[in-house]
Nucleic acid binder design. Structure first.
Length: 479
RNA sequence: GGCGCCAUAGCCAAGUGGUAAGGCAGAGGUCUGCAAAACCUCGAUUCGCCAGUUCGAAUCUGGCUGGCGCCUCCA
């Protein structure tokens, strides 16, 4: 069993072969912290969080690094707009990132470096590039000389000639060539700056990622991930910088997720057609949002619509009901006569079903993290579990088996189903009353006084209590 | 202008040469006093359109149409 992943560099699916056995060095580009992140950004975080979880599930020790770009024109502009200090703005949005990421079930990376924490290393890296003849200084700015890197364009599959032909407006500044890009930008009056051999200034955008990779993961890494829109120029430039500096392969596998679209267009801050993740979470469950974001293969575009979100919500409800029914059945079982608790282990045919579902899931995820197929495996487990629940005799070990299997798969996808949100204190005091109403209703049903039974059900329903009569008794829950 | 991607049922979405997964919504059935939950069955003779290759194509090739992304900040 091997994991295959689509590598943007080769344009093919390749077998994952890591630098060190059972260890993955994984870098994903993080946000520029000048605002909250929108659902499109959220897709990227969720997708690669899921890749990371899956690699861990498959036994890899994953060292996952995700940076914060906390030096950027946009942050400076934002700070000016707000009349605040640049550092304060950046720090605040880093905190806000963690808040929303946590709400979406995105695990913190192993390391979350910030560009401002790596300034000395960035300066040293740039100095090395100049020394090696890959960069030049012009009036306090430093540029990377793309013509010095023969393989420039290999990630985006374009030649330098093609790129130059594509430049509509040539903004040369001090650059020798339009495809050259800034490594170091001299500070404009009033801007935050760091001292450097080229005068006061700040790092360009691309250099921080090259530096952080080297600093936290080493000169060569296994997986580098980001959104499709980072392929060019950002990742192309990272490759140019790192490979020019170290003289060998930078990242083995380049993973890029498709855009999240809305009304057929890419959701982006510059187009202004975005929905903040935080706002979406006000009206939708995190589980549904995450389900939606994983409902398509990560490389494909995904269109955001109300309808699709509603469908995701319903799908998640179906899974949740199955888990709820498994838990209820176990509760009844444990309360029942002791012979019903007999636990002789899991029957072979049920074990075979567990194995079948798990294989379906792993096969799907092994094939370039096909979460759409993986979700189908979850539904297969749900269907089989529900079928098992319809049996007259069930065993605790098997109920537990279904529950833990479904939970196991959901946790790899990072989908956490919210439990009853009613505060415990309120819940407990109310429980007794509900139980007695249900008992009264069952008395009425026994006496075939269905009018009275339905009245009680309506009353409970009005209080937000849904009841379901099963062969094992009546179960209820807050809706 | 250059590079690249996509087009599968009402909706979402897998499937890259062997005869169309899964989910949502819908219809019918079973169970139930009823309801709910659940299970079963039904739904694309067909995969944007037109040619071609092949014993065989949603899957490969060419053309066309429609849509998107990148080439400028962007996950």
């Amino acid at each position: 069993m091997t994991i295959r992943l689509y590598n943007t560099l080769s344009g093919k699916k390749e077998v994952l072969e890591t630098i060190e056995p059972n260890k993955v060095r994984f870098y994903a580009c993080g946000p520029t912290v000048y605002n909250l992140f929108h659902v499109g950004n959220g897709r990227m975080f969720v997708v690669f969080d899921t890749v990371r979880r899956y690699l861990e599930y498959r036994g890899y020790e994953v060292r996952f690094v995700q940076n914060f770009t906390d030096v950027d024109d946009r942050i400076i502009n934002r700070a000016n707009e707000l009349g605040e200090n640049v550092r304060d703005v950046a720090n605040r949005y880093i905190e806000e990132y963690f808040r929303d990421a946590d709400a979406l079930g995105i695990k913190p990376a192993t390391v979350h470096p910030r560009a401002t924490e790596c300034i000395p290393e960035i300066i040293a890296f740039i100095a090395d590039l100049i020394r090696l003849g890959h960069a030049y200084e012009r009036e306090g700015d430093v540029y990377f000389d793309t013509s010095s890197f023969a393989e420039y364009g290999k990630l985006s599959h374009q030649s330098l000639d093609e790129m130059q032909a594509g430049f509509r407006i040539t903004v040369l500044e001090h650059k020798d060539d339009p495809t050259d890009f800034a490594l170091w930008k001299s500070a404009k009056p009033g801007e935050e700056y760091w001292e450097s051999p080229w005068g006061p200034g700040r790092p360009g955008w691309h250099i921080e990622c090259s530096v952080m990779n080297a600093k936290y993961l080493g000169e060569e890494i296994d997986i580098h991930a980001g959104g499709r829109d980072l392929v060019f120029p950002h990742h192309e430039n990272e490759i140019a910088q790192s490979e020019s500096r170290f003289g060998h392969t930078f990242a083995r596998y380049w993973l890029h997720n498709g855009t999240l679209n809305i009304n057929g267009e890419k959701m982006s801050k510059s187009l202004g057609n975005f929905i903040m993740t935080r706002d979406l979470l006000e009206e939708r469950s995190a589980a549904a949002v995450r389900f939606f974001l994983l409902s398509a293969q990560y490389r494909h575009p995904l269109n955001y619509t109300q309808d699709a979100m509603e469908q995701a919500e319903q799908s998640v409800v179906r899974i949740g009901r199955s888990l709820r029914n498994l838990a209820h059945r176990r509760e009844v079982l444990l309360e029942g006569p002791s012979f019903a608790r007999g636990d002789e282990g899991v029957r072979n045919e049920v074990q075979a079903e567990f194995d079948g579902v798990r294989k379906m899931f792993v096969d799907a995820m092994d094939d370039d993290f096909n979460t759409a197929d993986a979700i189908a495996a979850v539904f297969e487990a749900v269907r089989l579990a529900n079928t098992y629940l319809a049996e007259d005799q069930v065993r605790e070990s098997e109920l537990n088996g279904w529950e833990s299997l479904i939970s196991e798969l959901l946790s790899v996808l990072g989908i956490q189903l919210s439990n009853d949100v009613t505060p415990q204190s309120t819940a407990r005091s109310e429980d007794e009353e509900i139980e007695s109403l249900i008992a009264a209703r069952n008395q009425a049903r026994k006496a075939r006084d269905f009018k009275r039974a339905d009245e009680i059900r309506d009353e409970l329903s009005a209080r937000g209590i849904t009841i379901e009569d099963t062969a094992q008794g009546t179960r209820w829950f807050r809706s």
